[in-house]
Amino acid sequence: MPSIDETLGQYSELFILLAAMAYTVAFIAFCWDLATSSKTIRSVESRLAREQSEQKVLAGAGAGTSATGSAGKAGAGASVETADEAMVYTKERRVAARIGVAITIVAALVHAAGVISRAIAAHRVPWGNMYEFCTTGGLVVAVVFLVVLTRKDVRFLGSFVIGLVVIMLCAAAIGFPTPVAHLVPALQSYWLIIHVSIAVIASALFTLTFAMSVLQLLQANREARARAGQPERMGFLRLVPSALSLENFAYRVNAIAFVLWTFTLMAGAIWAEKAWGRYWGWDTKEVWTFVIWVVYAGYLHARATRGWTGTRAAWLSIVGYLCVVFNFTIVNVFFSGLHSYSGIQ
């Protein structure tokens, strides 16, 4: 077995810290974007609304002209204007969001350097303990986010997603610090590569849909308030697509993530058969993986069940994600079981 390169391991930890700091800056930029953009939108709207009401006075009860049509509707509270449903980029300049994306790219590069150098230092895949799951998982979340950004304008998710990445990196550095080391015999299997990598990707996708489902609930609430003619409270939601398109987008991503999770479950069972002699034994980790699977199966069913689409489905998606987090943190740290690979002494 080749020796561990401990110096490189230390550099890796440094890269991760630097990446965490850069992500924090990106996070602030995204928050700033939400705050300022919604303020700009609001001031433009109130101006348009004023103009429109003046026009109304002039034109009697006539409808708004085409120039002020859409904003006028929002100003009148008849319908809620939201960001583009298709989530395509518009010409509008959002400086803060651009800064956020740029810094996220830099942070992801440093982050990738950290993860890769750790892998080189250990001569193996960098997902053998909690520290490594968090750092590698965070990288996957960030990269998936950036990849989606090339096709859709989901910058409104930036503060949520990058905020979660910051939390993951802090959890790794503060909660589960583990120096580089070889794997114990139980983990020396190619199933580690397959099972855990797919689990990490699935979790990253669930992270994205979690953020979307939370926004969906907020947006649905805002839409309901607007329909009821109440004033709006969370202006930043104007940058966010409508609850329905959030739901549809989250559904598509959840469907992919669910297939990957099913695969994780199966690969885990095959590995368990190889390592422990039974493919299923209701070990705590297995129980929670199963619970997560069933909750998301429920989510997919909910989407085909009348009365369960929309808000209720979003709640199931959120509960599913909370189970993912629980499975990763509480179960790994506090529950004893065969999966005691957290690396925490």
Binding site: W282, V287, V291, V294, T305, R306, G307
Partner: peptide, 27 residues
């Protein structure tokens, strides 16, 4: 009905949880 299937699925998820909280005889 689809609603029952959904309900039973969610119930199954909840029912699986105690097995991770209490020690289990087979294991």
């Amino acid at each position: 009905s689809m609603r029952t299937a959904l309900f039973l699925l969610l119930l199954l998820a909840v029912a699986a949880v105690p097995g991770s909280l209490f020690p289990q005889r087979p294991a």
